[in-house]
Design a protein around this nucleic acid. Structure first.
Lengths: 335, 335
DNA sequence: TTGAAAGCGCTACCAA
DNA sequence: TTGGTAGCGCTTTCAA
């Protein structure tokens, strides 16, 4: 790999001059510039971003830590992040944490050592105090994605409470009365909030909350399937199920299909996330659509803003999800 | 951020000594070491990987260029790459090329400037000569993924010809005779090869090849849908369709459903890739399963081998896909 | 066992 | 308009 020295030598100028034409910092004679350019071209020279980074303290890359890129909720998010970053001249370092706190910590530390200019942390399970303390030592902006923050950390989240409410309310409106919930992991904020929304809608519909109808899942297909089996074993099974994400709804759907239970005639189903897949299962899954891509771009926006404006006040953006009614929850009887 | 100097000062030693304990290069007094360690801890010191990189010419990161992470075929691949990289202490820089040659070139150049230690290029549409030339200037290993290479570039691909053959043969065996093909883009090698496999199977089954039955798609749901509509407009529509990927098959499936054509009774369908989604559409899609995750890990393996062993001979791994028979292509009549 | 100093490739400042 | 030089944070000789 050619260095700036090689270019300088070939062009017969000093490295300073080469640096100047590289950075278009003016004060370079046109003839000289041309000679330098020619040398650059001839040597296929590309300035080392890492040497530059050492000087400028900037690497033009962001770290993106997310649970698992193979989980269909995240690619869209990652794409939003990448696109927006790309637009501003940044690259993305992708890290899969598998919802593992230790892995998260490890990556957080690693990204710091690699001097990324900002960190986007998706769906973290780390304690807020830990993150706040971390942010103290961290010299780069960090934003929490798909998770809200009470403390001074930027965060972008969807209104999970509203989403849970909309999903359940929809089922109530459709005339269902024994509405079960396959919840997300209750140590995850989103899981808690969606459950809370579920309770709100029930209360509003004057339907008593029945603990037996709530069973915890793990946001995965297999967990949804297992949970559905548990619900079917109930002495009086539900006539509708709100699943805390689409993946679990799909698992539930499979079990229902295997068991010969008709959806939505015997049991209605509502999912959450609006992953691509949800539109193509049978029957098409009613779901709560999250502005996933948008969340990704917004996260980068915040970081960029911080980078240019210095430490700005802490932003906490909450986006509203949308109910998308499809076939898996069509009206059972006039509401 | 604390630097090695700060640590040295606090510990009352020279930077060399700190460096020595950092790299466990021996010859450090135990007492000194402890003092240094204490200073490191106290300052939350983490050696700057970028300064290290400047010296060592290594960044411990690989570049991964793929068409589009939101395309369900790629997350699994990316995960394979990340996991294996992670296992060897490397990080991944993720780049979405959108099948755009210019974007690919841009990223290739960028990754070079960022001094990644290796590049994994997925489904590239760049001309082989270009890549070969590039590899000449490049000083880091590169491997082509999901694409084969005739020239001296490492490559990992699935046997697309075999896959196309298996899919079509299966339909022939099931008794279908008017077998259409919604092909991949014909400028893409995989598209060409799957079509070739299709032709082989037809020939073997003594079914004349009919150009009219082959229509080109774009590997996307919408493209599959459009193609299916074209096929339905034929004076004698097919009784089976082999789609060059699952996404197009799903698009076709939708059109079929809307049109009221029964699958597989009136038209059978076979997809390609074995994306997660394919198991959850209705009817469950028969497909050709690719060893996606494995392809990712293998790619990293090759790079690592190259890194440790120096330039090894060029490897070209071809993995065999597997036919997974599901509901969308069950037997129409005894073969 | 330790420290001083050079140098990785680049930018930035000061002189010329 | 140009060149020299210091220095970014680290590793790596070479001496001590």
């Amino acid at each position: 790999m050619a260095t700036i020295k090689d270019v300088a030598k070939l062009a017969g100028v000093s490295v300073s001059t080469v640096s100047r034409v590289l950075n278009a910092s003016g004060y370079v004679d046109k003839t000289t510039e041309e000679r330098v350019m020619a040398a650059i071209k001839q040597l296929h020279y590309k300035p080392s971003q890492i040497a530059r980074g050492l000087v400028s303290k900037k690497t033009k890359t962001f770290g993106l830590i997310l649970p698992d890129i193979t989980n269909p909720f995240f690619p869209e998010l990652a794409r939003g992040v990448e696109d927006e970053a790309q637009r501003h001249g940044y690259n993305i370092m992708l890290c899969n944490s598998d919802w593992d706190i230790e892995k998260e910590k490890m990556y957080l530390s690693l990204l710091q050592a690699k001097c990324v200019d900002g960190i986007i942390l998706v769906g973290s399970r780390l304690r807020e105090e830990y993150l706040a303390k971390l942010l103290g030592t961290l010299k780069v902006p960090m934003v929490l994605l798909d998770r809200s923050s009470g403390m001074g950390i930027h965060s972008i989240s969807a209104n999970n409470n509203l989403g849970g409410y909309l999903a359940t309310k929809h089922l109530v409106d459709q005339g269902y009365r024994t509405i079960a919930h396959i919840s997300g992991p209750q140590q995850s904020p989103s899981g808690q909030q969606r459950l809370a929304g579920y309770k709100n809608a029930l209360a509003e519909g004057n339907i008593p909350y029945d603990e037996v109808l709530v069973t915890e899942g793990d946001y995965r297909i297999s967990g949804g399937a297992a949970a559905m089996r548990r619900l079917l074993r109930l002495s009086s099974p539900p006539d509708a199920v709100f699943c805390a994400n689409d993946l679990m709804a799909i698992g539930a759907l499979e079990v229902l299909q295997e068991t010969g239970v008709k959806v939505p005639d015997e049991i209605a189903l509502v999912g959450y996330d609006g992953i691509h897949l949800s539109k193509y299962v049978f029957p098409k899954l009613t779901t709560i659509i999250q502005p996933t891509y948008h969340m990704g771009t917004q996260a980068v926006q915040i970081i960029i803003d911080n980078l240019v404006a210095g430490q700005t006040e802490c932003k906490h953006i909450e986006l509203d999800p949308i109910l998308e009614i499809r076939d898996s929850s069509i009206r059972r009887k006039p509401a």
